[in-house]
Simulated assay, not measured.
Amino acid sequence: MAESVAAGRVTARKRRVHKDAKGWVFVGPFLAVFALTFLAPIGYAIYLSLFREQAFFGGNVFVGLDNYVEAIQDSKFWDAFGRVLVFLIVQVPIMLILALLAALAIDSLRLHAAGFFRIVIFLPYAVPGVVAVLMWGYIYGNNFGLAADLNDLFGTTAIQPLSSHWMLPSIANIVTWEFVGYNMLIFYSALRTVPGELYEAAAIDGAGTFRTIRAVKLPALRGAIVIATIFSIIGSFQLFNEPNILRTLAPNVITTYYTPNMYAYNLSFAGQQFNYSATIAIVMGIITAIIAYVVQLRGSREAL
C-alpha cells in the first residue's frame, strides 16, 4: 500500500514537472527578449556608472559610488529636475482635468456626434511627437508663424512663446495638446464598464447629473485616474522631444541641461561622458520609480 502511494506521488510530481516544462516553452521567448531589451541595458548602465574615464591617461577606472555623489551635488541636474517637477505639478493636473471633462461629456449621451468629438480629441495623439513639436514651433516662432503675425497685426512684441518666461508653459501646451486624447480614452473606457444598474439606482434616488458624476462616475474612474497620473508622471520626468527640438528656435533659452533627459543625452553624445550620463539616467529613474510608486500606493489605499 505504501509503495503504491509513493509511486503515485512520484507520478504526480513528474506530471507537474512536465506541465511546468511546457509552460516555460511559451514563457521562455518573452523572458529572453525581456532580459535582452530591458534587464541587460539597465545592468550595463549600472556597470558604466561605477566607472570614470581618466582624462589624461585614458581608459576607465573603477570609482564605486563617486559618480552618484557627484550627481547628488550637481547643480545642473537639480536645476533640470526642479524644472520638470514644476512642469509636472502644473501641467499634469490641467491635462487630466481636461481629459476627464472630455470623457464625461462624451459619455453623457447629451453630446451630439460624440464619436466625431472622440476621434477629434484623440487625433493629436496619433500625430508623431516630432511632427507635433515642429507644427507648434512654426506657430511659436518669433520671426514667422502665428505669434509673429499677431505681433505685426497689433504692433507689439508682447507675444513671445519662446521667451524664457513662457518657454515652459509653451512646452506644457504642446504636451497637453498631444496627450489629452490619450488620457480621455483611458477615462472613457473606464466609464463604459460602469454597470447600467448603478445609473438606474441613482435615477430612482433622484440624483441629478452632477450628483451622478460625483457618486457613480468618479468612484468608478478612481483606478483609471491613478493609472493616468502614473503615466503622466513618468512622461513628465522623461520630457525630451519638445525642448530638444525647440532648442533650435531658442538656443539661448533652452540649455543643454533644460531637462534631466536632455542633460544625460548631451553628456553622453556631446560631451562623451558616458559613465556620468549613465549615473544621471539611473538617479532619475530611481526618483521617478519612487514617486510613481508613492502615487500608486496612495491611490490604492484611497480606492480601498
Rank of each mutant, 00 (worst) to 15 (best):
M1G: 12
A6R: 14
G8W: 11
G8D: 09
R9S: 12
T11H: 09
A12D: 12
R13Y: 11
K14T: 11
K14V: 14
K19L: 13
D20E: 14
D20V: 12
W24R: 07
F26H: 00
V27H: 06
P29Q: 11
P29Y: 08
L31F: 14
A35R: 01
T37I: 13
F38C: 12
F38Q: 13
P41E: 09
G43P: 01
A45Y: 04
Y47N: 10
S49M: 00
F51W: 15
R52Q: 15
Q54G: 09
F56Y: 10
F57A: 15
V61I: 12
A71S: 01
A71C: 07
K76E: 14
F77H: 01
V84T: 10
L88P: 08
I89F: 12
V90I: 15
V92M: 01
V92H: 05
L96P: 07
L100H: 02
A103C: 11
A105P: 00
I106N: 07
L109H: 12
L109Q: 15
L109V: 09
R110V: 08
H112Q: 12
A114D: 10
F116I: 14
F117V: 09
I119C: 05
I121M: 03
I121T: 10
P124K: 05
G129H: 09
V133I: 14
M135A: 02
M135E: 00
Y140N: 06
N142G: 07
N143K: 07
N143D: 13
G145T: 02
G145E: 06
L146C: 05
L146Y: 09
A147W: 08
N151M: 03
D152W: 08
F154G: 01
T156F: 08
P161S: 07
L168K: 02
S170W: 00
N173I: 13
I174W: 05
V180F: 02
V180M: 00
V180R: 04
Y182I: 06
N183K: 02
Y188C: 07
Y188K: 06
S189H: 01
L191N: 08
L191F: 00
R192M: 15
T193K: 14
T193P: 02
P195A: 10
E197F: 07
L198R: 10
E200T: 06
D205N: 10
D205E: 14
G206S: 11
F210H: 02
I213K: 07
R214V: 09
A215T: 13
V216G: 08
V216I: 15
P219L: 03
A224T: 00
I225N: 04
I230T: 10
I233W: 03
I233N: 00
G235N: 02
Q238L: 01
P243G: 06
P243Q: 01
N244I: 01
N244K: 10
N244D: 08
I245C: 05
L249R: 10
N252E: 14
V253A: 02
T256Y: 13
F269C: 07
Q272H: 13
Q273A: 14
S277A: 15
I282M: 06
V283H: 00
G285S: 01
I286A: 02
A289V: 08
I290R: 00
I291Q: 00
Y293N: 06
V295S: 04
Q296G: 12
R301S: 04
L304W: 07
L304N: 11
